[in-house]
Simulated scan of single mutants.
Amino acid sequence: MKNSMNAVRAKATSIVWFCSNLRVHDNKCLNSATNESMSVLTLYYFNPRDYDKSSSGFNKTGLYRVAFLIESVSGIGKNLQAKWSDLVVRVGKPEIILVELTTAIGADIVYAHREVSHNEVKAEEKIEAAIKDEGVELGRRRERIPASKLGCTMGTELARKLLINEQN
């Protein structure tokens, strides 16, 4: 009975949108999508607005950051290909790309890491409104990275207790 209940609740098709969380092995959005959907498309897009000049005339994204992003997206693609499928990479405005893809594949939900900074939250709200018009839900997940994965030295007793609790 439990399996048939899960099948009823499962989404037919979903999109996992890699935006700021560029990890695969512990990505809550990817885990949720693979557990809750029958078919999953993974996506990363390069938004041209992120590479414009700021209001003060400086590049919003420097060359080293661009190189890092390209390398990271390539790594995500290789990791996904080894386990599931290809990563779809697009260049364009996310509110257009996501509407086109959700319509093309009949996606029920787009899973994305919940943004926290002002500009990203505003952009996310615009995207959510655009895909909602198509009847698609934006399933956002807030990632909590365990201290053990941050690679930092823990000096306090409290930090050690938190780390032990996370491992249990």
Results as ranks from 00 to 15, higher is better:
residue 81 Q to G: 15
residue 118 H to N: 05
residue 70 I to V: 11
residue 126 K to D: 12
residue 163 L to G: 03
residue 69 L to W: 14
residue 113 H to W: 07
residue 15 I to G: 01
residue 151 G to K: 07
residue 50 D to C: 02
residue 42 T to Y: 01
residue 56 S to A: 13
residue 79 N to A: 13
residue 58 F to A: 04
residue 41 L to S: 05
residue 105 I to N: 03
residue 78 K to P: 02
residue 63 L to N: 15
residue 113 H to F: 02
residue 30 L to E: 09
residue 139 G to H: 03
residue 41 L to H: 00
residue 10 A to D: 07
residue 59 N to K: 06
residue 18 F to D: 04
residue 117 S to A: 14
residue 108 D to P: 05
residue 105 I to E: 01
residue 75 G to Y: 02
residue 110 V to P: 00
residue 130 A to K: 01
residue 56 S to L: 08
residue 87 L to C: 10
residue 58 F to T: 03
residue 24 V to A: 07
residue 15 I to K: 00
residue 75 G to C: 15
residue 132 K to H: 14
residue 63 L to R: 14
residue 133 D to H: 10
residue 109 I to E: 01
residue 15 I to V: 11
residue 134 E to P: 05
residue 49 R to L: 04
residue 54 S to F: 14
residue 100 E to P: 02
residue 57 G to L: 13
residue 10 A to L: 06
residue 30 L to D: 00
residue 44 Y to R: 09
residue 62 G to M: 03
residue 46 F to W: 05
residue 60 K to G: 10
residue 162 L to I: 15
residue 95 E to H: 12
residue 158 L to A: 07
residue 88 V to L: 15
residue 162 L to H: 06
residue 31 N to F: 11
residue 64 Y to G: 04
residue 132 K to Q: 09
residue 65 R to Q: 05
residue 75 G to A: 09
residue 137 E to P: 03
residue 154 M to A: 07
residue 139 G to Q: 09
residue 39 S to C: 03
residue 126 K to A: 14
residue 63 L to Q: 09
residue 6 N to D: 04
residue 47 N to Q: 04
residue 95 E to L: 12
residue 33 A to Y: 06
residue 140 R to N: 06
residue 64 Y to K: 05
residue 168 N to L: 08
residue 137 E to V: 12
residue 151 G to P: 04
residue 112 A to E: 06
residue 33 A to K: 01
residue 129 A to F: 04
residue 131 I to H: 00
residue 149 K to S: 08
residue 106 G to K: 05
residue 8 V to A: 11
residue 31 N to W: 09
residue 27 N to H: 09
residue 142 R to K: 12
residue 47 N to F: 00
residue 162 L to N: 09
residue 31 N to K: 12
residue 132 K to Y: 06
residue 46 F to E: 01
residue 133 D to M: 13
residue 79 N to Q: 13
residue 136 V to I: 08
residue 19 C to S: 11
residue 124 E to W: 00
residue 145 I to A: 08
residue 116 V to I: 08
residue 104 A to M: 03
residue 49 R to E: 14
residue 65 R to H: 04
residue 51 Y to Q: 05
residue 66 V to C: 10
residue 136 V to C: 02
residue 115 E to V: 10
residue 19 C to T: 08
residue 65 R to D: 06
residue 71 E to G: 08
residue 81 Q to H: 10
residue 121 V to L: 12
residue 14 S to D: 02
residue 60 K to C: 04
residue 32 S to K: 07
residue 106 G to T: 14
residue 161 K to N: 06
residue 80 L to Q: 03
residue 126 K to I: 15
residue 158 L to R: 06
residue 2 K to W: 10
residue 66 V to F: 12
residue 125 E to R: 11
residue 103 T to K: 10
residue 119 N to W: 11
residue 55 S to M: 08
residue 151 G to R: 10
residue 88 V to W: 00
residue 150 L to E: 10
residue 109 I to W: 00
residue 75 G to R: 11
